[in-house]
Amino acid sequence: MMMSLGVVDREFHVFRGLPDADGEHIGEVKSFTVPVQPGWVVLDALLYLQAHNAPDLAIRWNCKAAKCGSCAAEINGLPSLMCKTRLDHMPLDKPVLVRPMRTFPLIKDLVTDVSWNYEINKRITPFTPYNDDQSTWRYFQEDADRVQEFRKCIECFLCQNSCHVIRHHRKFNHFAGPRFLVRLASLEMHPLDVADRIPFIKEEAGIGLCNITKCCTERCPEDIRITDNAIIPLKERVVDRYYDPITMLLHKIGIK
């Protein structure tokens, strides 16, 4: 798409507010006009607002290059990175609506409390290599490829925000969410890892709650095929372990 030439005044509707005691988003959408330059992303416009109209506007951002995953928000209703959403790719005749991620408790304006994600991560058994003698470690790019796709994750939590199990059904205590199923997949599929996380994946991570609607995959800014490459293979491993009659029998008599 060609860039528009010159500065264009555009209207922005930006959520401003504070949480109530339960973290509910209490506030209102405020209207601003911003002189938008060619090539700007939504974050450029919000930083302009901060510098000129609303110096206390709360935004969380770091790299402004889609590498850190800090600036996740909902733009015209779609969970997106503010640093990656080009304004010249959006309809000119409509205001640009920017709201915080709906799934998480509000801190202020566009900033939400994502600490739940960090708590989930702590419960995952870390990388456990089969031995400590690295001189014998060998694995090939083909093996690395599968894991590297998952390790591209920049922890923007847009997948967590988009997942209806968390967003609508609020299963914070029963489901780890796509991000951490991806993390679990990266560990389970690491060619040198020997820990067994299948019981955790089934019980605490609650993988059965995912009914593969693929909303997470659609919103992933890193194009990780979350559902197809991470969640479904893990579901298969859980099924093999717990629901395959022959495997169940072998387990019972002590053969893995």
């Binding site: 870390p126 990388f127 290599p129 400590d132 690295q134 470690w137 060998r138 694995y139 090939f140 790019q141 093996d143 690395a144 894991v147 590297q148 390790r151 990266s186 560990l187 690491h190 890892d193």
Partner: peptide, 20 residues
Amino acid sequence: VKELEKWGAVFDRTPDGRIL
């Protein structure tokens, strides 16, 4: 660097399976 690999880093590989 080797320590990072031991902690789970997945570097690109050489044809013989080591860190590229």
